[in-house]
Amino acid sequence: MFILSSFSDLVIVDPEDFSKRTVDALEDQINAKYANKVVYNLGLCITLYDIQRVTEGMISHGSGSAHVTVEFRLVVFRPFKGEVLTGRISSSSRHGINVRTDFFDEIFIPATYLFEGTTYDVKENVWVWNNEENKFYMDKNEVIRFRVEEETFEDQLPVPPHLLEGSREVERKPPYRIIVSSPG
């Protein structure tokens, strides 16, 4: 579910942070940049794990900030294909079930990936699994176990102004989405 990834990045420490220990200042900068953000084709970054190498700080012309190249490792949420996880149902529709965990919302079970014999109850807006004699209702907020099948990454490119057509807001696809199935 979680992996460790190693990065190298240029971290800029502003003069106001010079009073902190270097390690703490770097940690804060890295966390502010990466925590809870999706990196394209990698996964959802959680926090810094450790710092492995730090160069000497360079102060560039015209500003008082120290520029430091840092090699570090991050904890990243990236379940592998076939991994079984638990989450809660956040909403259901004709197309399938949306599932979330406390920290990640973009999990989707398409109708075709549900158990055989699962039907959609339009009136109640809920999927029902008819297992022999018993009916299992997949209600909202119910804990559900699922298996990772596919993952999609969307690069969040800026939209050119002429395509906006007056509206400031564009509907964006989630940067990282996991398609899952009910295991069985």
Partner: peptide, 19 residues
């Protein structure tokens, strides 16, 4: 930003919680 190694290793939930 440069990703040196996207998958150094896996962490168990316990390790993440401890961290």
């Amino acid at each position: 930003m440069k990703i040196l190694n996207p998958r150094v290793g896996m962490l168990s939930n316990h390790e993440v919680l401890t961290h």
